[in-house]
Simulated scan of single mutants.
Amino acid sequence: MSLYLKDADSSIDHGIDWSAHLAGQSIAASLWSVAPVEAGGLSVEASAIEGLRTSVRVSGGLIGRLYRLTNRVTLSDGQVDARSVTFRVEEC
């Protein structure tokens, strides 16, 4: 799992390149989630599937907190896979 820093007032884009994990499949669906869910916490603004890559725009977050951002994808053959990254919110 990777750790990224994020300013509490920023909205940033993050993406995952799934090409090395697909073995000829395509991405049929993508769902992003944040943990923990809390008032004023990190939130998902928008998401997209771009070929073999998924992307998300996240905003907010409480200073000093860690958030796990998880992308769960469903592949064209019905398999499900997930990848997570961690964001630490700072005042930059």
Rank of each mutant, 00 (worst) to 15 (best):
D7W: 01
A8H: 11
D9C: 08
S10L: 06
S10C: 05
D13K: 09
I16R: 08
I16M: 04
D17E: 13
S19W: 08
S19H: 10
A20Y: 14
H21R: 13
Q25V: 00
Q25L: 12
S26P: 00
S26D: 11
S26F: 00
I27R: 02
A28G: 13
A29W: 06
L31F: 10
L31K: 14
L31R: 14
L31D: 13
W32N: 02
S33H: 05
A39F: 13
A39L: 14
A39S: 15
G40Q: 04
L42I: 04
A46M: 01
S47T: 11
A48G: 11
I49F: 09
E50V: 12
G51S: 06
G51P: 06
L52M: 07
S55K: 14
S55Q: 13
S55L: 10
V56S: 11
R57E: 08
G60A: 07
I63T: 12
G64V: 00
G64H: 02
L66Y: 13
L66P: 01
Y67P: 06
Y67E: 03
R68I: 10
T70I: 03
N71L: 04
R72I: 08
L75K: 08
S76P: 09
D77M: 06
G78Y: 05
G78Q: 04
G78L: 01
V80G: 00
V80K: 11
D81T: 10
D81V: 11
A82S: 12
R83V: 12
S84F: 07
V85H: 05
T86F: 13
V89G: 05
V89K: 01
V89C: 04
V89F: 02
